[in-house]
């Protein structure tokens, strides 16, 4: 276990964290403001990946693909909100969970119908291939580094959007008292639609950036979605800051656990036991972390005060 490998894995974990943040941010906004549990958020991530891969197929340009896929997921999000989710705001969480579960089934099946082959893949653009030399001889792929930078930029932009703009003010106001907001003459319906579209865009962006690494496939959203739930629980529902820190913690711990837990266990256990327990334990690690957070801080690490 060299220190170079260690840093590399740490960065990989950080990159997973960024991806989780893109999903968790939308989930937590939508939940904080509209009180809506949206299981289909992972489907929007999946659709982002498919749009990106499809547009790349048509235009042969990564940049064009992204530029087209971003508004596409935004519009798709708005469409989903207007057609189905709008009726769910006044329902209880159980109905929301079931109806959005139905949406997942539909999206996964649509994807299988439209792209019947085993998924849709696209290459990393050539100008982003290769790796850069970070400090101390640590090489890291440019593309993954770019994902991290984009994610950080999104985090900063969201922070300003929610904290410093008029729209952010409305979002925060909506989270604390939506009736009052409506009574003051704000078109709450439109605000909800916009916020949902924004969440869809963020999830889709995550999917687009992962498309060259993972290749788009039906059902790819679900495992990420459940991790994003864990992130929200750790970070505290409704808080962007909590979502960011929770996402980074979850991403790093999950990735590091998979790479180093068996080495770590070797210190206490005989070799064969460590080898058997390593993978099993590392897959459970972030859930154990979640349980621990819940036991000591049931509201999450950074419960929302402002939304």
């Amino acid at each position: 276990m060299s220190w170079v490998f260690f840093t590399e894995q740490f960065l990989n974990g950080f990159q997973l964290g960024i991806l989780l943040f893109l999903l968790a941010a939308g989930l937590t906004l939508v939940f904080g403001i509209m009180d809506l549990v949206n299981l289909a958020h992972g489907s929007l991530y999946m659709m982002g990946a498919f749009f990106c891969a499809q547009f790349y197929d048509w235009t042969d340009s990564f940049l064009f693909a992204i530029v087209l896929a971003v508004p596409a997921t935004f519009l798709l999000g708005i469409l989903v909100e207007v057609v189905t989710l709008r009726t769910l705001y006044t329902r209880n969480h159980l109905d929301q969970v079931l109806a959005t579960f139905g949406l997942i089934l539909i999206f996964n099946e649509i994807v299988l119908l439209v792209w019947p082959l085993e998924g849709l893949s696209m290459p990393v653009p050539t100008y982003l291939l290769g790796s850069v030399n970070l400090l101390f001889g640590i090489e890291y792929p440019i593309y993954r580094l770019l994902i991290i930078l984009v994610g950080l930029a999104v985090a900063v932009a969201l922070y300003f959007l929610v904290g410093r703009t008029r729209m952010g003010m409305l979002i925060r106001a909506g989270a604390s008292n939506r009736r009052m907001l409506g009574a003051l003459g704000i078109d709450v319906k439109r605000l909800y639609t916009l916020v949902f579209g924004l969440g869809a865009l963020l999830a889709g962006l995550g999917g687009m950036m992962m498309a060259p690494i993972l290749s788009a496939s039906s059902g790819m959203g679900e495992s990420v979605l459940i991790l994003a739930f864990v992130v929200i629980v750790i970070g505290g529902i409704g808080s962007i800051r909590g979502a960011f820190i929770g996402a980074i913690i979850a991403g790093v711990i999950d990735t590091m656990g998979r790479s180093f837990l068996d080495v770590f266990l070797l210190l206490f256990l005989p070799a064969n036991a460590a080898e058997a327990a390593g993978p099993a334990l590392s897959s459970m690690l972030i859930y154990v972390l979640m349980a621990a957070v819940l036991t000591f801080r049931p509201q999450g690490l950074f419960p929302a005060k402002t939304g």
């Binding site: 109905d95 109806a99 139905g102 949406l103 089934l105 539909i106």
Partner: peptide
């Protein structure tokens, strides 16, 4: 699932 999903949503709603 393309038939079942909408059925599920309609039942819930």
């Amino acid at each position: 699932h393309i038939i079942f999903g909408p059925f599920l949503i309609l039942v819930v709603l």
